[in-house]
Design a binder for these strands. Sequence first.
DNA 1: CAAAAAATGGACTGTCAAGTCCAAAAAGGC
DNA 2: GCCTTTTTGGACTTGACAGTCCATTTTTTG
Lengths: 233, 233
Amino acid sequence: MVRACRLPAEVPGSRSGTPALIWTGQSNLGVTMRTLTRKGAATRQRILEGAAAHIREHGVAATTLDDVLARTTTSKSQLFHYFPGGREELLLAVARFEADRVLEDQRPQLGDLTSWPAWQSWRDKVVDRYRRQGRLCPLNSVTSHLGNRTPGAQAVVTELMDRWQAEIATGVRHMQDAGEVDPGLDPDRAAAALLAGIQGGVLIQMSTGRTTHLEAALDMGIAHLRTGRLPPP
Amino acid sequence: MVRACRLPAEVPGSRSGTPALIWTGQSNLGVTMRTLTRKGAATRQRILEGAAAHIREHGVAATTLDDVLARTTTSKSQLFHYFPGGREELLLAVARFEADRVLEDQRPQLGDLTSWPAWQSWRDKVVDRYRRQGRLCPLNSVTSHLGNRTPGAQAVVTELMDRWQAEIATGVRHMQDAGEVDPGLDPDRAAAALLAGIQGGVLIQMSTGRTTHLEAALDMGIAHLRTGRLPPP
DNA sequence: CAAAAAATGGACTGTCAAGTCCAAAAAGGC
DNA sequence: GCCTTTTTGGACTTGACAGTCCATTTTTTG
């Protein structure tokens, strides 16, 4: 067994004027949490990121709580202390964590779709992001495990998709304002189609290991913005 | 406990000239199987379809072997007799079963993409198919559970995607031959983009419950065929 | 410093489900 | 009809893993 971390003076600020206790409001499953010290918050974060890393490497099915414990040198009591809802709450937290990464990894390009070179640059960034990620999609893995029992998992994905689509749509409107895109095109619908192409491209990549579909979908979506007109629903 | 089925004369043809023993070659995990009687083949099929149905309703995670047994009024020994590889082999067989359904459910339209109304009809069939299926995608569920350990699961999906894309590409070439689509467009790449849109649309539907993204992706893909040109890779 | 609250260690329990095994019944081959 | 092969029932074993519990240490507060 590896010795557990024993670093009593590791956490600074204990004596300063700033409050050392952090109120976290609610935990992820509606359970009201107590206050956390800095050390506690750090431990919680360590568990969360350790779980995310293990899932990224091995998938959800092959990730047990003991795996996470071993990797983060924490104990059962700590895990259940910070995630009272147990495995399910932890997985949901990981889903949130990964969902946040998805959009952040596309910055700043995603928020600046104001010229065709900018669109191309975003396209390249997306392809690169998923090429790096490889065959594992932690978010899809987690949500497909939590599945339908947990409305929370669906909510995380839905919110991500909404935000993602909205940012793309904003870019489309920019281009319309600049006279580069047919004003008769519905920006939200075009963004929805483009987003679907990305998702499907990534999904196919998970089986084939290749990003060809992702690239084709992005290229077609952008090409269609430049030339085409989407018929109204 | 429900009484197990006891229907000795249920299986006809035992006395006819046709052989009653069926050679199945190989099982799904490389284990060589013995011969099956008609009754045996029927039992195997019952288990397979029962498993598929349970998964479609509850997802893979919530499907135990005992669930399948109860639903199909069979016993453990039968399941392991026909699926020596146990749970994993059964899930893989379900994946194959579902993969076959996917393309069949698009017939005959998928094989006859020879006019714009035909494309539209196919589009409607795809949307309808997934609207009926609801939020559960059994194939995605199964493969994402088998995940990466099992190369077989990836092979099933990869083969499905290849065949699907090939059929779409054939449709594109038809339209090119008919002078309805820009001959400079790469049919395989266009089909790849369209396929990615479908997959992503379905994936998003699994979280949101709506088919808007699927519809937008299909409409954009087809619209692009009619008007646009996909830049070469 | 002393009391209260939070963080931690780790053993223990209970459950659940996959997989094994053997004996008995049914069906096929000749 | 007799022998072989296949099919079936269901109890039993085994292992893993989520979740509980309590004692101990550390930190905060006043």
